[in-house]
């Protein structure tokens, strides 16, 4: 689990880290929309340059991004195989056994791979540079306008921030329980069917017990301090948009407009 990098916050100090989370979330949304506009290789090139520039500015390493890609590798290989079998347009390129590989099969797969890569690059720019708590503040603010149509913005934000808050704890707890049960001779990796069921039970039951315990403790602690969901609350941290945040939004909008223009041209 220590190798899981997708969506992880990296505590560095960079201009991107200091940006307003609302600007970053909006920027990410604009860029994600831009990726889905069929603007051809030039368009993707532009988006790639923007994303790579942001990654450099954020002092992130490309290795970190590639690592985030790893969980999707198998899916992509699978996709490639399916595409090779199904797509029969374009010129035939070469033959492997009974299968003829067509030009479009390769291109279609490449298209999806490139899109995925871009999406991961862009979302990483957000998640790796924004503290989970800032992120929820941003989400709450962005959802505020929808409160008029009864979207419970504050509750959603509180839910997300509590969930985020407990993810590292639960991962740690899981590792701890695995170790404790391994000390009692449990083999988490192999064994007969019955042994495996016991192994999983010996992990799940304590994990649930402790998760419920934590939830109860937290609920009590919040209630003891007078928390009530519907009430007006003031904020300790007040978000403020600065010049660089507006610049980011303008740039992202410009990229999106550019993509739309490119797709119209072709």
């Amino acid at each position: 689990m220590g190798n899981f990098t997708l969506g992880r916050y990296l505590p560095l100090d960079s201009p991107i880290h200091r940006m307003d989370p609302r600007a970053k979330i909006m920027g990410m949304l604009l860029m994600l929309i831009a990726i889905f506009i069929p603007s051809g290789w030039i368009g993707y090139g532009i988006i790639f340059v923007c994303a790579a520039g942001t990654i450099l500015l954020a002092k992130l390493q490309f290795g970190f991004i590639l690592k985030s890609m790893r969980p999707m590798m198998i899916m992509m290989i699978f996709l490639f195989i399916i595409n090779c079998l199904v797509i029969h347009t374009g010129e035939p390129l070469f033959v492997i056994g009974p299968v003829i590989i067509y030009r479009d099969a390769i291109f279609q797969t490449l298209y999806i791979v490139v899109r995925l890569l871009l999406m991961i690059m862009i979302t990483t720019c957000l998640t790796a540079t924004t503290k989970p708590l800032d992120m929820t503040l941003g989400i709450e603010d962005l959802l505020k306008p929808f409160e008029k149509i009864h979207v419970p913005a504050h509750e959603i934000a509180m839910l997300i921030s509590i969930a985020l808050r407990f993810i590292p704890d639960l991962i740690e707890e899981t590792q701890r329980i695995i170790k404790a049960q391994e000390s009692r001779g449990v083999d988490m990796k192999e064994g007969k069917m019955q042994e495996r069921i016991m192994a999983i039970l010996s992990l799940i039951v304590p994990l649930f017990v402790s998760a419920f315990q934590r939830a109860e403790d937290l609920a009590n602690a919040m209630e003891a301090r007078g928390y009530a969901p519907g009430e007006k609350r003031t904020r300790y941290k007040v978000l403020k948009m600065a010049g660089r945040d507006y610049t980011l939004l303008v740039c992202c909008t410009a990229v999106l407009a550019g993509m739309i223009w490119l797709s119209r041209m072709s």
Partner: peptide, 11 residues
């Protein structure tokens, strides 16, 4: 090996 707070491993 008995872990710290081993009561959490009972199931």
């Amino acid at each position: 090996l008995v872990f710290q707070f081993p009561e959490y491993q009972l199931f």
